[in-house]
Design a protein around this nucleic acid. Sequence first.
RNA 1: GGGCCCGUGGCGAAAUCGGCAGACGCAGCGGACUUAAAAUCUGCAGCCGCAAGGCGUGUGGGUUCAAUUCCCACCGGGCCCA
Length: 969
Amino acid sequence: MSATNAASAKPADSGDLSHRYTAAYANAVEERWQASLAHADGSYGHHQANPGEPGFDASKPKFYCLDMFPYPSGAGLHVGHPEGYTATDIICRYKKLKGFNVLHPMGWDAFGLPAEQYAIQTGVHPEVTTKKAIDNFRRQLRRFGFMYDWSREFATIDPDYYKWTQWIWLQAYSSWFDPTVKKARPIAELEARLTREDATITVENAASKKWSACSKREKQAYLDTFRLAYLGTQTVNWCPKLGTVLANEEIIDGRSERGGFPVLRMPLKQWMFRITSYADRLLEDLALVDWPDMTRTLQTEWIGRSEGAEIHFAIEGERDALTVFTTRPDTLFGATYMVVAPEHQIVAKAIARGNAELAKYVDWAKNRSDIDRQASKEKTGCATGLFAINPATGARIPVWTADYVLMGYGTGAIMAVPAHDERDFEFAKAFQLAIVQVVDIDGVAFTGESATSGEGRAVNSTSAQLALDGMTTADAKKAVIAWLEKQGIGALRINYRLRDWLFSRQRYWGEPFPIVYDAEGNHYPIAASHLPLVLPPLADYSPIESDTPQPPLAKARDWTHTTAGAAGVDAADLPPETAVVRETNTMPGWAGSCWYYLRYCSSKDASSFVSPEAERYWMLSRKKSASTMPAPTTYDAATCHAGGVDLYVGGSEHAVLHCLYARFWHKMLFDLGHVSTPEPFGKLFHQGLITSYAFQRADRSLVPTDQVSEVKEGEFVETATGQKVTQIVAKMSKSLKNVVNPDDVIAEYGADTFRLYEMYMGPLEASKPWNTRDIVGVFRFLQRAWRLAIDEKSGEILAAAQPDAKIERLLHRTIHKVGDDIEKLSFNTAIAAMIELVNAATRPTGLADPTHGGMTRDQLARFARVLWPFAPHFADELGARLGLHPAGGAGFFGSTWPTYDPAMLVDDEIEMPVQIQGKIKARLMVPAKAEASAIEALALTHADVIAAIAGRAVKKVVVVPGRMVNIVI
RNA sequence: GGGCCCGUGGCGAAAUCGGCAGACGCAGCGGACUUAAAAUCUGCAGCCGCAAGGCGUGUGGGUUCAAUUCCCACCGGGCCCA
């Protein structure tokens, strides 16, 4: 038997295949390599040095690859986690071989409700359960062999981390958005300017006062209206069940995103972020990043910029006008009534005039939950008894209130144009209000039976004051706005759907705000030198039952009641002995994830939230077109990438909230000079959801997987009843008993097989069902590759002495294709290419010289490096047995990606199909570089072609060199 | 209701500057090896048909020498926003 012929090395009858690549063998190999990454100093894994540290190579380009860090739940890793993590691990290993400095960190998003709820039930501190969950997650991630730089690991609950979360919040608190330069600036600059100019400001009760004449309190109140983090009274979404208020973003169809509980609206004083001041930049800068179109669209819609007009309607008998926002000022003549939200202050005035019916309606409407308000199709409302004047027509129009107008949108009041708005139309019909057509839409007749919406030409829109008839919608809008501005009763206005971000939560398990209040309720920041403000332990975590939200931290009386000096308030602001009370709300779960990618750059830095040098190195880089220029020191839009992180991979469920919040924080930090780039994430990618199979009865109810049997291929019945059920794809869930535990899969096949399977399932971005039966395919691939290289009896290398020309050629192609596919994140096709190579090499019958099958040691060494990003333990083991590195330690970590010869990618001769009328009739072998005319001549003289033409006249011959020939007759 | 995305063998999928549809894997069927099975190797395999051949990328149209790919309409599924 030739030792060069791996495939014919038939296994002996039994027993002594002690080096066969079985699951147990794979597990042993993997665990040995993983154990060797535990270093003597207690650290683990591969460390990537920062600039200035020993071992840092400044000549290499950087690649910062980020995974969305997980929330460490008690349930451990889900199979969905390793999907994205394997993808980034492959790219990072590849980039490492390609000569990059690679930053690939991991950490824990560890504040949040589940741990707090568990604490409420058990009394165990959330930190205890969370740290236990983190330990388990870390163990699982290491078992996958991901090459994270564990020296940079942290959790958002670490005081050393949230110290800086609090610090960043203080930056926002001490900043304002200057609209003239469209960026954040220190509020001290605003204060200095007001002092310098001795500006006249508006104080309480709309009185005007010189800055120098203002009291300290008045100055403070004025500055507070500018802070990027400010205390605002908002109608909030109060969720009694969760015991907290929620952001608009956390509510879906009137219920909490988490848990699906009802949400009530109530006014409350809360910490807010003035994210709306960044609306335009958040919108514009989406053009600077390489993100999925879907995600960009979602953020654009979420910000919801709309151009229109603000119009002030005079109210009979009232001093103040009623202001509305409309995107269709051109329909002003059609405004036949007005509607305000029940919470609108003008309603209170109307009630004060003694309108009992109105009071009754408002009470009823206010007590309706958002669910009821949105669910009811029937229009409800009540006339306020007030009348407004339509400035265009001079007509008296009634002011109504209705719950379909929400206080949170626009100004909480609308001018109703029933002829051209569906909801206004229904309302007008229900209450017999006038309907006047003012837009003639091409091809759509206005019948009075329904509203017509869209653009057209103005009709019925001319009065002594204003003439619009005949104008296009766009022109009419401009004309109306110009007229409103001239009259001083309105103006062009840009409105956003985006609201300011409610940042307070009535929760325990979150970052405390570094702020205290004096007896009068004035707020004072805690100096940075007193951070972190550590979360105090509690004995009882349960929510405080109350009509109003009561944060659990209020129970920590010893902590909340302190003095200004002890808390760390600047003595210039407040004498140190002054009694103060701490803020008892905490920050939401989003806080920690808004900047964690920055902390990874220098996660142990004690003197700043991120070391400026490390931040600049990892976040700032040149565009490809400017790659020959020296490394940048400051951002330059023409030559630098706007986004810092080179690749960010995570689920699309974070496409709006997390990715919008992080951008907002990043832009604030950018404006204040703390980070180098205007955007945090250059390229964003969403991996698809891993689903599972489930079974459905005829009535569409679902049956847990363990209650179903397969009677024959593809046919399933419910075991208990014998009734037929259909196999469908569904989300993994405990109730359906179709959740796959990664630990089990690794035990059965090894981590390398798990990694390969998830990458081979399909495109990374696609949602795909887990099919346990398919795993064996990639496992067999590894077994075949192993057998190709290793003698299963001795464990020694089994290599060909001479390279086979065909295999060498295929190897070059594989190196090329796998590298290309990794860059495109097309891992399934990369793996298919490697399988083809191994199949060809293990099938000596297909080779030119069957006695020289398999691969040489040199070929195996190149193959191992191609496989390494995907199945690192396997590849490192193979590398060690080939003598390329020691059997343990870094393996191929410091190696290079194999090169290929472009000449090997093209064949000398290729097969081309010849079609007649689009049907293939013959196949032609032609030289790869043959001219079209030569191919045509060859085709027309081919016997099968002549037969197929059967003497008919050839009208046209289309030759696409390298592709095909089509003959038209 | 509006917007976006997706429909390819029994299954996961591949191929889209328009150019041989179904690479690769699973499941399936046959053969070799084996007392047998597993494992391995090897062959077959879109559908109809003994074959020649025909039909095939959700359905119907269109553009083109040529359409999974581009355009229109519809059907089905998903996601987001109302």
